Computed example of a mutant assay.
Amino acid sequence: MASGIFKYTPIDRSSRQIRLLKFIPNVGLGDNLIRCYLETYEISQCPSFIALSYTWGEDSPGHKITLNRRPYFVRDNLWAVLCVLKSLIRPDLEPTNMPSITGSMPIDQQFNSKKLWNRFWVDAICINQQGDFERGHQVNMMRDIFSSADSVIAWLGPEYDDSNLAMHSLFHLPDRDWCPGYWGEYEQELKKSEKAIANLFMRPYWSRMWIIQEFILPSHIFILCGQLSFWRSDSWLNFTRLPETATEQKVVGKILPGYRSYWRSCSPYYHQRILHLLLSTFSKWSCSDPRDKVFALLGLIGDITSLSIPRLYPRTPVPLLADYTISPREL
């Protein structure tokens, strides 16, 4: 291993470059250290990749991996999902289409001999979080990143609080609205998993500001919790059909999946005019940087260069872009 900690090579901010993470097999190395390599691409020329949607957590980075053969440290939740993703990589196979998942089962069984593409976009690693200019540059590309990804993995976290039961139940939601007695045998099964489903919806993932656009923008969302997963473009929309007692959190169980369906049915013309609605709808979602209350929603607006900030620049309005060099008060 090369000496010294990992240092980022600057991205060309005059272009539309992004970095992608690739796992390096541990063949013959005799340990379980996660080894990765960062590659830089023009987004229009990227190979197939998967974007990761997850929560950072409040802990300090304490898990060691390597990037380009140099030490790099990540937080607990990211470490957990990297371990799962690494176990899926088949370096001996070429990329194939994403498998069509037919149920909630152990993720390694779902993939069998199929390969999960060995290129990922993970914000905490692929963006130099210490560089304000780069952060702004990459945040302004979030719409393109999550729209260009072949799929998005929504990592809900490790298995606990009967999440396996909840995942099984949610996958098998009937494709029709709920009313007492109408779901037949499934209604009895739902009662058994009611608390587990409520606990799943109360996880920190659902209250994070950044997951709003990460959940709404992609065509396909691959849901991963512990070792269980399913992948269908429409599964999460069925959450709006759950009875209130099955979620206990109307904001999570109804608004976000419902808004995904609503937003995707609207025209791009409408997307450019809904910033005020987004700010109101998702005002209670959390983020560590108050500026992200606005920046985390810009990807849903469409052509953000058509918006401007006349109060901050009264003489010459400028496009509303993510800019971490300005203060929350200025924003």
Results as ranks from 00 to 15, higher is better:
residue 2 A to Y: 09
residue 4 G to Q: 13
residue 8 Y to K: 00
residue 11 I to H: 06
residue 15 S to H: 12
residue 18 I to N: 03
residue 18 I to T: 01
residue 18 I to H: 01
residue 41 Y to N: 01
residue 43 I to D: 08
residue 46 C to I: 08
residue 46 C to M: 07
residue 47 P to I: 00
residue 65 I to S: 02
residue 76 D to M: 00
residue 76 D to C: 03
residue 79 W to P: 02
residue 92 D to M: 05
residue 95 P to T: 00
residue 95 P to C: 05
residue 101 I to W: 08
residue 108 D to H: 08
residue 115 K to I: 00
residue 121 W to C: 06
residue 124 A to D: 02
residue 131 G to R: 11
residue 138 Q to Y: 07
residue 148 S to L: 08
residue 155 W to M: 10
residue 158 P to G: 10
residue 161 D to G: 05
residue 172 H to V: 11
residue 174 P to T: 01
residue 176 R to I: 15
residue 180 P to C: 06
residue 189 E to H: 13
residue 204 P to A: 14
residue 212 I to R: 12
residue 216 I to G: 06
residue 218 P to E: 12
residue 220 H to A: 03
residue 228 L to H: 15
residue 232 R to T: 15
residue 241 R to I: 00
residue 247 T to P: 03
residue 248 E to I: 12
residue 259 Y to D: 09
residue 268 P to D: 13
residue 271 H to P: 10
residue 273 R to P: 04
residue 280 S to L: 11
residue 283 S to F: 08
residue 288 S to T: 11
residue 294 V to L: 14
residue 295 F to T: 08
residue 297 L to H: 01
residue 297 L to F: 03
residue 305 T to F: 08
residue 305 T to H: 09
residue 306 S to V: 03
residue 307 L to E: 04
residue 312 L to T: 09
residue 316 T to W: 04
residue 319 P to D: 11
residue 324 Y to M: 05
